[in-house]
Amino acid sequence: MLLDSGTSNLLSVQRALDHVGADVVIADQPSMLDDADRLILPGVGAFGHCVANLIENGLFDAVLDYARRERPLLGICVGMQMLFDGSEEFGWNDGLGLLPGRVQPIPMSGADGGRHKIPHIGWATLERSGPDWAGTFLEGFGRDRAVYFVHSFSARPEAVSDILAFADYDGIQLTAAVRRDNIMGTQFHPEKSGQAGLGILSRFLAM
């Protein structure tokens, strides 16, 4: 089930899910989440705007209820950021609080102090954080495969164990994928990352 968070990448995610053979329902009512086997929370644009959209449609609490039932939840981009306590984008806005941590601006310079471009736009490989991706939605993901990012803010999880993967940006480690039990997220866009991204969506659907 794909949550209609009023975001402009909703249909892109739907197309990608259709392509990998998922049976997709777009949920725009809280009660629709009762029957979901899996839930994807897409999101692009400003964090506060995305959260406000969820609250307005009664979906904020519905996502929390869904998450408590321990069924798989995947947040994409701002959808992943919303899993955290909140974001500093345009002043503090609370998130869903399913994962401890905050979303902060990407540093304006790389590790060597040289300025780099913000937003961070483009393809990057995933660097493993922790021992193994076995049993996660990144299982079997190749080291040299790249996925597509576009973001100006980045999640800083409090628990290192929640981080599955980083992306390197001039020596700065950006949180690329997170997981704690049934709560999962990608900062990158699997729906826009070619075959590599479609493979990740397939693995999420198989969980």
Binding site: L11, S12, R15, H19, Y148, V150, K192, S193, Q195
Partner: peptide
């Protein structure tokens, strides 16, 4: 295009 091309 968007139906079969999964990049931006």
């Amino acid at each position: 295009t968007a139906d079969s091309v999964f990049i931006p």
